[in-house]
Design a protein around this nucleic acid. Structure first.
Lengths: 223, 223
DNA sequence: TGGTCTCTGGAACGCCGTTCCAGAGTCCGC
DNA sequence: GCGGACTCTGGAACGGCGTTCCAGAGACCA
């Protein structure tokens, strides 16, 4: 890898793993998950598909690199807070929002877990669980539950946003689903029918944080 | 749809949506997510790809139908229990195991949520949350948190199982990852390094249930 | 018996991830 | 200053995919 030391570049801006990953992120954000193809990426970088394969092994590696970059940037925004409770909530929100802004990251995290992206989240959460005073034997469980919940909800929230092809207004979308829930069979879906109104009014982010608090309460109560 | 009333069949067993979905489930279980192609499915059904399209609109609809069938069968096994706590745990375990046995269901649930499969889980969990005595305004939040956690952990657990192409022994796999964690940078990943041993020994299912209990404790404590 | 409607399945289309490879540009030993 | 080796490029090509098309087989009705 002596490449970086080379003085001059052949192209205006030489192809590099970083430039490819950045272009991939742009493409994914602009065109959605299906928009990322090696041909489209090559066009955007003014080159051919073959050139990309010199820097990246395959599409899966490209997706891992792209999601790692997004998660790392998001976590970088969370500074050390005074109270563990607060920092856990901050990390959760930042991850939630990163996946909301880049829905393809969510899909990627559930396909290829325990790569760098997820490990970073686990580490940050784990330290705060420790700071909360959770005893050694229960830390792994508590941190795992939190991370699973954070990723799980974020992925599903992002999936909801991707549901309809023309990006539809959130309020309209909830209105529609809520109406569908109200039409459900009263025998089969009594509960869902009853909470249909709450679906329309609910705030994903607030609901998400309420879940975090539920888990934190559980962790603290059984400490 | 007067088809079902037709007395005689052209083939030994006529093609039907149900037969196609069953064959798709078999194919997915046998060959993995990438094994389901319309060509392979056509071969298994001794027909051509075009015939399948008469019964199913596209691949996405086929995947939705297949996961709905698997989840419905799994939930069907859970009878009404006396105590809501118990039934919630039973539902959680059954979903966890169904996704573990059919990992492709997990991937599907995070791509297309809020279809029948997820709704069924939500409904069953919601009723028990209500039975727990959670007040009306908090039921939606509690049920959502539980469902998100259940799906989130199950999907990630299933994704772990799919990680390596030749199905590797679970203990070996954990041993390897645990060893990798111990090799992590001490500055960057102190927590993860510390719990590496717990990763090796932990039981996914038990950990999953511990998380459920954590949330249930939280729900009960803040009731 | 002829027409219509349901259903079949093979052929073909366009796009994808990936591989191949001729060659352009750069560096290094002599 | 020159020749070979090595890095990197990008267009062409391959096999496989989801999907569409359509000629026609079989069952039903007038």
């Amino acid at each position: 890898m002596a490449k970086a030391t080379r003085g001059s570049e052949r192209r205006e801006e030489a192809l590099s793993r970083e430039r490819i990953v950045d272009a991939a992120i742009e493409l994914l954000d602009d065109e959605g998950e299906n928009g990322l193809t090696f041909r489209a990426l090559a066009t955007r970088l003014a080159t051919g598909p073959g050139a990309i394969y010199w820097h990246i092994a395959n599409k899966s590696e490209l997706l891992v690199a792209a999601s790692d970059a997004v998660v790392a940037r998001a976590l970088g925004e969370v500074l050390a807070f005074a109270k563990p409770h607060e920092e856990i909530r901050r990390i959760a929100v930042v991850v939630f929002e990163a996946i909301d802004a880049h829905p393809w990251v969510g899909a990627q995290l559930s396909v290829a877990p325990w790569r760098t992206a997820m490990l970073q989240i686990f580490e940050r959460i784990g330290r705060q669980v420790q700071a909360l005073g959770v005893p050694g034997g229960a830390r792994f469980t508590a941190a795992s539950a939190l991370v699973s919940y954070i990723i799980g909800v974020s992925v599903q929230n992002a999936a909801n946003g991707r549901l309809l092809d023309p990006p539809v207004d959130r309020a309209d979308f909830l209105e529609t689903v809520s109406a569908q829930w109200k039409e459900l069979d009263a025998q089969e879906y009594p509960f869902t029918r009853n909470v249909a109104a709450q679906l329309r009014e609910h705030d994903d982010r607030a609901e998400f944080l309420a879940g975090i608090d539920l888990i934190l309460t559980g962790i603290t109560a059984s400490r």
